[in-house]
C-alpha cells in the first residue's frame, strides 16, 4: 500500500477524520500550555487537576449534563482547595496537591463503583478518541483553539509571570489575575483533552512536548514551535496507529511523545559525550 493511500484511506470514515482533527487541535493547545507549565515548574499541578476532575465527570454522567461541565467545576474546586490549604498551613505545596488530587480521585472511584453502566466512564479514564461524538468534537476544537489563541496573544505576560513574578509585581502587573487566568486556562485544557487521551494520560500532553522542546532550544519562540510540531505530529500519527493497529489512541499518542523525548535526550547525551571525548583527546 503506498503512503498516500495509507494516509487518505482512513479519512474516508468520518470518525477518523474527526479523530485526526481533534487530536491535532488538542495536541497543539496542550503543547502551547506545556511550554509555560514546565518553565513555571507547575507540572505536578497539572497532574493534580487532571486527576481531581474524575468525580466531576461521574456526577455529570449521573445527572445527565455534559462531562466537561462537571470536570471543569471539579478542576476549579481542586485549584481553590490547594490554594486555600496552602495559604493557611505550613505544609509544602507538593504534599497539599498530593492530598487534594488523590482524595478527589478516590471520590471519583467510589462514585464510579456506584454507577451501574461504567462503560462510558472508562472512556474518561483512558480516552476514546475514535468514538467521539460530533458535538463533543466541535466543542473540543472550539474551546481548545480559543485557549491556545488566548495564551499566544498574551504570551509575553505569561512568560514574565513564569520568569520573574517579583519584577512583574513591582511594575504593577496584575499578578493575581494572571495567576488565576493561567489556572483556569489549564483547567479548561485538561477538561477539553479528556476525551482524547483520558484523565490519566492528559498530563503527559501537558509536560512532554514542552520538555522535548526545552532540550532542543534556548529561544522561547522556537520552543513553542518545536513543542507544537512534536505534539501535533504525535497526536496525528498516534491516531493513525490506533486505527491500523487497533490499539488505545491515548496510549499511542502519549507513548509516541515519550519516545520522541527519549530520542532527543539520547541524541543529546551521545553528542555531549562525543564533545567531552574530543576535549580529552585534544588535551
Amino acid at each position: 500500500m503506498d503512503i498516500i493511500q495509507f494516509i487518505i484511506e482512513p479519512l474516508q470514515y468520518s470518525f477518523m477524520l474527526k479523530a485526526v482533527i481533534v487530536s491535532a487541535v488538542v495536541g497543539a493547545a496542550c503543547a502551547v500550555l506545556s511550554c509555560f507549565l514546565i518553565l513555571k515548574g507547575w507540572s505536578l499541578l497539572g497532574d493534580a487537576i487532571s486527576h481531581a476532575v474524575l468525580p466531576g465527570v461521574v456526577i455529570a454522567y449521573m445527572i445527565g449534563i455534559p462531562f466537561s461541565i462537571g470536570a471543569f467545576v471539579f478542576a476549579l474546586l481542586a485549584v481553590v482547595l490547594i490554594g486555600l490549604i496552602k495559604t493557611n498551613t505550613k505544609i509544602k505545596e507538593d504534599a497539599i496537591m498530593g492530598i487534594v488530587f488523590t482524595t478527589l480521585f478516590a471520590l471519583g472511584l467510589i462514585l464510579i463503583s456506584q454507577v451501574r453502566s461504567s462503560v462510558d466512564l472508562t472512556h474518561v479514564l483512558f480516552g476514546e478518541l475514535l468514538g467521539i461524538s460530533d458535538y463533543a468534537a466541535l466543542w473540543t476544537i472550539g474551546v481548545l483553539s480559543l485557549v491556545a489563541v488566548i495564551i499566544l496573544v498574551f504570551r509575553r505576560s505569561f512568560l514574565i509571570f513564569c520568569f520573574d513574578v517579583v519584577h512583574a509585581q513591582s511594575v504593577g502587573m496584575p499578578i493575581r489575575f494572571i495567576h488565576y487566568a493561567f489556572l483556569v486556562l489549564l483547567a479548561i485544557t485538561i477538561t477539553g483533552s479528556l476525551q482524547t487521551v483520558g484523565i490519566i494520560l492528559v498530563i503527559a500532553m501537558l509536560i512532554t512536548p514542552g520538555s522535548t522542546a526545552f532540550l532542543l532550544t534556548k529561544r522561547f519562540t522556537v520552543m513553542l514551535q518545536i513543542a507544537v510540531a512534536v505534539s501535533v505530529f504525535s497526536s496525528v500519527v498516534g491516531a493513525y496507529l490506533s486505527y491500523y493497529l487497533n490499539i488505545s489512541t491515548g496510549g499511542a499518542i502519549v507513548f509516541l511523545q515519550g519516545c520522541i523525548f527519549l530520542l532527543v535526550f539520547g541524541y543529546q547525551a551521545v553528542m555531549a559525550s562525543r564533545v567531552k571525548l574530543k576535549e580529552q583527546l585534544v588535551n
Binding site: L39, V153, R156, S157, L159, I160, C162, H167, F214, F220
Partner: peptide, 28 residues
C-alpha cells in the same frame, strides 16, 4: 539564586521586560 538561569530568554528579552509596565496589554 532566585533566577532560573536555564530559562529560554535572551539578554535582550530580559531587558525588554523592564518595559512591560509601560506597554499595551499585549506587551508588544
Amino acid at each position: 539564586e532566585v533566577v532560573d538561569w536555564d530559562f529560554p530568554v535572551s539578554v535582550y528579552e530580559v531587558v525588554m521586560m523592564g518595559r512591560v509596565g509601560l506597554q499595551n496589554i499585549f506587551k508588544t
